[in-house]
Design a protein around this nucleic acid. Structure first.
Lengths: 247, 247
DNA sequence: CGGTGTAATATGTATAGACAAATAACACCT
DNA sequence: AGGTGTTATTTGTCTATACATATTACACCG
């Protein structure tokens, strides 16, 4: 047990923040365990000499962040986390590489504009023959292949892409700047490098690779599907999480 | 372009939600692109005939979720997403397997209670000789090995674990029910199965495996470090994301 | 005993007003 | 032209109040 007097009322910041910090502190320290009923709004009101709106906003914010659950007539309770969830940051590869202080390189391997094939259709939920762009490119870090990008782009959703040749700027970079999206799904898996991948990534045939696939939609309309293949020894994904939801 | 009249003022729910839905709709549809200055609080006040507090709470909530940024004297602006981030759900393996409608199995391979070795120390940030428990176990789905779990537990932080033999209940399950935590970090990578792993997971030597490592702390004190190794063909991680932050 | 109606209570939502703090825009002076 | 100070505007925070709504707890009655 750590000394409980350690987290008595903080003194910094606004009243809202002071109350919030106090409550979060008690919950995160375990002093108020999951299921614990926290003080009613009118009790906080007395404790901190504040209006009920202030206490209400604090508790509502904590509820929005998932740290507490509120039930009418019953009170507010410390939430018990159901699943381990984490905020996964998937940065732009260029930024990622340059963050490591290494030189970033980009090369377009293949660009094809075509009517959607059967395969394309199963990957991107477009109709047969709808115009798409298929791209394959390589991202390098410090001269070493760092990732293979294999992308399918729905031209009906992103007509501007037709005028871009993607020889200098990577499709990922171009897309985040030009195309808003509303929904995304990621799938993370592992696979052994086949001969093609091994050659293009300069790894042994059979080497384990980390594969990240992403699908993006805008209001239900598919925009793009992309698969990044990383050499296992060059890339990890990192996800951080605090229960308060503030990474 | 979709018809703009489509997302005129919604009529359902509270005023707060109506305003919020309207604004989110315009942003997510692209009608209000990143950088767009949204109406001032007093404009929303007129538009919706509401008090400023109501408009303020809506905009503050949108700011908290990351959809908009607010600057004093300047206004509120549609945020431009910096990185692709996603909420990663890492469920309990037992629940995960049973969700797929398959039979879940668990077997403890090894349990050792010891003073921390040098290796343990680098994995868990404990002092040399501090008591730890090292566990290795296997999770099965439909009779097939599904995951290897390799865990190190800080007994000083979780003394109750000493009385648990983990022969029936898996450490993951036991921990989520008994130990609160405040911080976690995940690392996701790929590796080739060595002979030990291949034997225990019933895969070929060299097969690509997805590796998920997690470190957990409570108020800075390390609780546990765990590594799950999954056969690549049996397990994917799925992460979903909507820019409004509401998965 | 068990079902039903009612009152008490806690949260949910909203209003109207007040002052503080930051800063963009403008006017002014050198 | 360029730096400086002032002002106006917008958001940030908080108070005090009001009524709506859901639900627990309890009293009542068949």
């Amino acid at each position: 047990m750590t000394s409980p007097s350690k987290l008595r009322a903080s003194t910094a910041g606004t009243l809202h923040q002071r109350i919030r910090n106090d409550i979060e502190g008690r919950i995160l320290s375990g002093e108020w365990p999951p299921g614990y009923r926290l003080p009613f709004e009118h009790e906080l009101m007395n404790t901190y000499s504040c209006a009920r709106m202030t206490a209400n906003k604090v508790l509502s914010a904590l509820a929005a962040s998932g740290l507490v659950e509120r039930r009418r007539r019953a009170g507010s309770f410390v939430a018990r986390p159901k699943v381990h969830s984490a905020v996964l940051q998937i940065p732009d590869l260029k930024a990622e590489v340059e963050n490591r202080g290494e030189q970033y390189g980009y090369e377009l391997l293949e660009r094809q504009q075509r009517g959607a094939t059967r395969d394309d259709r199963s990957r991107l939920e477009v109709h047969l023959r709808e115009p798409v762009i298929a791209l394959r490119c390589r991202h390098d870090a410090a001269g070493q292949p760092f990732a293979l990008e294999d992308r399918l782009l729905n031209l009906s959703a992103v007509p501007d892409a037709a005028t871009q040749d993607f020889s200098q700027v990577s499709p990922s970079t171009w897309l985040v700047d030009h195309v808003p999206w509303t929904e995304a799904e990621h799938r993370i898996s592992a696979r052994n490098a086949d001969e093609t991948i091994a050659a293009e990534l300069s790894v042994e045939v059979g080497a384990a690779c980390l594969v990240i696939e992403r699908w993006t939609w805008r209001s239900g309309e598919p925009i793009t599907a992309v698969r990044f293949t990383h050499p296992a020894d060059l890339y990890d994904l990192v996800a951080r999480f605090t229960p308060s939801g503030r990474a």
